[in-house]
Amino acid sequence: MSKFGAQCKVDASLPQPMSEPLPVTIIGGYLGAGKTTLVNHLLRTAQGRKLAVMVNEFGALPIDEDLIEAQGDDLISIAGGCVCCTFGSDLSAALIELGKLPVRPDQVVIECSGVAIPSAIAASVTLLEGFAPDGTVVLVDAETIRTAAIDDYIGDTILRQLADADLAVINKADLVDVPTLSALESWLSDTAPRAKTIVSEHSKVPLDIALGLGATPIQSQQMGHADGLFDSIALPCADPLDGEPLAKALTDPKLHITRAKGFFDPIPDGPRKALHIVGHRWDITDSPPNAPLGIVCIGVKGQFERDLIRKTAKEAL
């Protein structure tokens, strides 16, 4: 990893002030579930967000060739200021190296190996200063998951991965019929009890869903959701509020919020706080001092009811 920094293309135009810890999204799931395809989809739709993707190995060329600007031994430079690097057996060391890159990425995406247990990776991330886990996305191959989950060798590994999921993505949904899909959804509600389940084809999970809304959720929301499959709502939060009951209310499964992020001032007073929601899990952390007030919630169009969310938020406060 010694040559790490030297191979990065430097974009000195936008030095970002050190603010929140770098959000780290963990992408898990068994071999063939579509993790690499999802990573490429995210890089393709990054819309100016600088993603640092960490993969287990470069071997099968994890990044689509047309996205690659330059390739070194340890680092691939990707269009739009994104990078990709490998971590082999030492993820912590690779993340520490990543923190030394001349250009700070906006987000880190870790593509786990097919047998990795995501919660173990998330726990390691919490130990490193300057990084914070920001959701575990576990992909499921709609066609094969039920067979794989009872396999003598890897079944229990797959169940552990699903139990760690904040978002469970039923991928390759186009390859199964409707009854199979709904049976799968109901199976996942037991198998991945913490997860919000979404359905995709060809790993086309919108960036905002997979990775959250970035450092400036209000601005992200105003850019709209290009694919039209997802909907969002901004809660203004002009007055100080009690974060915990709000967070609990917004993670109610009835609301179908997949992710939420934003900033608020706590009651009775105190420094500004950030609220993060992924699936059914929430977290309140310190906020950068001048982060704009307001919390953006996103979810699947059709399930997501703006009025119900507004009403619930109001009642919680």
Partner: peptide, 25 residues
């Protein structure tokens, strides 16, 4: 909050670091 880092009664790590990821920092 790490499964490889037990905490003492004072809420601080006891000093035992289990597994390469807990050891790394």
């Amino acid at each position: 909050n790490h499964p490889g880092i037990p905490l003492g009664a004072d809420g601080l790590p006891t000093g035992e670091l289990k597994g390469p990821d807990a050891m790394a920092p």
